[in-house]
Write a protein that binds this DNA or RNA. Structure first.
Lengths: 241, 241
DNA sequence: CGCAAAAACTTGTATATACAACCAAGATCA
DNA sequence: TGATCTTGGTTGTATATACAAGTTTTTGCG
């Protein structure tokens, strides 16, 4: 089977919703109607409805029908976004400046986070991400050389470390913490802050199949950057499976 | 049917995993094995496996089998946590101090967020949440009086506003932003900060069926509070449906 | 022994069917 | 009119079956 039938039905329904043919909270075809339209069994039509419901696209009520959920429900705070994509999606231009790409002895905290020995060599990169001409984020990243031996040879003017790493080492886990800090003078300098202002620091540790891959500190000025997220629950009365 | 059969199978499997009988990455019974053990059809056993997979508890590979995923994968940044629970779960004591509970004319920004008119009356509460004896978070909350007319009569020494609201008005959506700010002197005072330090401010807007319910500003010192999240992907090679 | 083919097992997709649970609207009856 | 019952439509659960597709193990042949 080239592509599964239930997936075709999902695609169709998603399209209807995206082009606005089926507005929010409007009723969508029932299981039986879809089954007939697509010449499939009810169970197959049901699966399409089911999966769209699990994705928060629809909500269903027993005895009543299936409906289009509020549309805004997609993004998630935990979505691992590429900052380049994020900037582009705002319609701004993205540029990265590589400040350092070296090998250095592992600080104790980094060693613990990456499962290395203290003072063992570790790769380190320091990059400033620019939105238009303003520095938006300072990225300090430690990379496990046992897992990514070629890291130090990359050209990070072409590709962000995050994107490169996710291509080379399939991500299995990511761990985040978000903190508010006052940046040190070094960070202030690279973010072009004349005086220290509150910054968001996102610490991101990523794991591949064989263990910790990298530890990144992503620091952004509070005045220029925020994290946003949106949660959407099914409207009252909707069933949750 | 008292409780669905597929749910019983899920419960059984979750128990096995929780008590450690089925360790991480160990194989779990196949669809056919479960079907026989529980005297159900393969499709019913399959559903249990399927849903546990969607929840990230298991991962499956066609032709190979189903396996227990890494256990740590539960929490989410976007989880709407009750701060009292959060503190209790750290083994500390929680206490709330109500500073204000009044009605006041709606500021323009709040009016926009809650769908009210400028200067229309709005409920406002100001609460400090303590972990042991230290202030951990200052909660400033505006509540839509059209939706929650009894808000102003509650005893928030007994119940957090968030918990009260979620009991009274079923949540349908929540919207968050996370920022780093330098607090004003008023906030510093209530968080017992001798001099301003970087703070995390979580802005949370919640919606019920009939529209925006409340707008809360949750401010915590960066030195005492962080947001953490963990994402867990299926191990390499696992299928994603 | 080494290699390839076959078999066995696993998950993935799809169908047809049956009944349960729930809801809304219409029909019926007092 | 007003309350109750019935009926049809919808989703929810469960079964038995069939075949496809992928992996691992076994078998058998050269």
């Amino acid at each position: 089977m080239a592509v599964a039938k239930f997936a075709e039905i999902k695609d169709f329904m998603l399209t209807q919703i995206e082009i606005g043919a089926w507005p929010e909270h409007s009723r969508v075809p029932s299981e039986n109607e879809l089954a007939e339209q697509f010449s499939v069994s009810r169970m197959t039509a049901r699966r399409a409805l089911q999966e769209l419901t699990e994705q928060g696209i629809l909500y269903r009520t027993q005895g009543v029908g299936s409906f289009v959920a509020a549309l805004k429900s997609q993004s998630s705070l935990l979505e691992i976004r590429n900052i380049a994509d994020e900037i582009h999606s705002r319609g701004h231009s993205y540029r990265a400046q590589l400040l350092q790409l070296t090998e250095l002895p592992c600080p104790a905290t980094v060693a613990a986070a990456l499962g290395l020995k203290h003072n063992e060599q570790v790769y380190f990169s320091l990059i400033v991400h620019f939105e238009d001409s303003h520095p938006l984020q300072l990225e300090a990243r430690y990379v496990n050389p046992r897992q990514i031996p070629e890291y130090i040879q990359q050209d990070f003017a072409q590709i962000t470390p995050h994107l490169y790493l996710s291509q080379v080492a399939p991500l299995t886990e990511a761990e985040h913490t978000v903190e508010a800090i006052l940046p040190d003078s070094f960070t202030c300098q690279h973010l072009q802050l004349k005086k220290p202002e509150a910054c968001l620091r996102l610490t991101r540790r990523t794991f591949s199949r064989d263990g910790a891959v990298s530890l990144a500190y992503l620091t952004s000025p509070g005045s220029r950057y925020r994290l946003g997220g949106h949660l959407n629950f099914a409207p009252a009365g909707a069933t949750r499976s």
